[in-house]
Simulated assay, not measured.
Amino acid sequence: MQLSESFQWIEALPLVRLIVIIPGLYPAISALHILGIALLVGCIATVDLRLLGVFTTKLDDALPSLIRMALTGFTVAATTGMLLVSVRIGNYAFNPAFLTKMALLLIAGTNALVLRLRAGSADVRHGLGTFRGRLAAALSLALWTSAVFSGRWIAFI
């Protein structure tokens, strides 16, 4: 199956057609996507700023909960993002801003995974006060912010 045939197949799926046909559904999914991004980036930025020492130790007990909320935000953003892309996947697949966003998301996710693995624990608090924790946090802030900017540029390219 050719790539363009695969894209046409995805765009013809019944769920994807419903997104196109039902008035208001695409904007509703888009709004959920933005809410997922807000939850993800808001929580991750808070954790990153704590790892960088910007926030005090009073936040430490909340860090595991913030990570869980960020993962929930990621799940919402990823699910809704796949639905949004499926409507015009043939266009998105060649959009430089979209491809950049996908690469940034992959790198940001890898950064988060490496931080957890290097800390030897699923608890991000083990990265507090360490060079690796601060480096991962600074990289995380830059990557997630860049992914948001790239996502906004998709419509303009």
Rank of each mutant, 00 (worst) to 15 (best):
G133H: 05
P96S: 05
I154Y: 04
R152V: 02
P27L: 02
A78W: 05
Q2C: 09
T100F: 07
T110I: 09
Y92A: 14
F98T: 06
F98P: 02
G24H: 03
I67P: 01
L113M: 15
V20I: 12
L18W: 11
R50A: 10
A93F: 05
F74K: 02
S86F: 04
P27G: 02
R132V: 08
I10T: 01
L139T: 11
L63M: 12
L63C: 05
A28I: 13
I21M: 14
I29K: 00
A38H: 02
A112C: 07
L39D: 02
A108Y: 03
L52N: 13
N95Y: 03
T72C: 09
L128G: 01
I44T: 12
A45P: 04
L104V: 03
F131K: 13
A119N: 13
V148I: 13
S65R: 08
A136F: 12
A142R: 02
R118G: 02
L117N: 13
N91Y: 15
A38P: 02
I29P: 04
D48F: 07
I157Q: 13
T57D: 15
M69E: 12
K58H: 15
L51P: 00
N91T: 15
L71F: 10
S30L: 15
L143T: 01
E11H: 03
M82D: 09
A45L: 07
M82A: 13
P14Y: 11
A147Y: 03
V54G: 09
N95P: 06
V114S: 04
D48L: 08
F94H: 10
S65V: 04
N91F: 15
L52A: 14
I21Y: 10
A137Y: 05
L59P: 07
A103L: 09
A155L: 08
L25Q: 09
S140H: 04
P27R: 05
V148T: 06
V20E: 15
Q8E: 12
A97Q: 10
L106M: 12
G81R: 03
R132T: 11
L35G: 03
G120R: 10
R68V: 12
H33R: 03
K101W: 01
S86V: 03
I21N: 14
G42I: 01
Y26W: 11
P14V: 13
I10F: 03
R68T: 12
V114K: 08
L135P: 00
L135F: 09
R152D: 00
L3I: 11
L51G: 01
L106H: 06
A28L: 15
L63W: 01
W153P: 01
A97E: 11
T56K: 15
P96Y: 00
Y26P: 05
D48R: 08
R134K: 14
G151F: 08
T130R: 03
T72N: 09
A12F: 08
W9G: 06
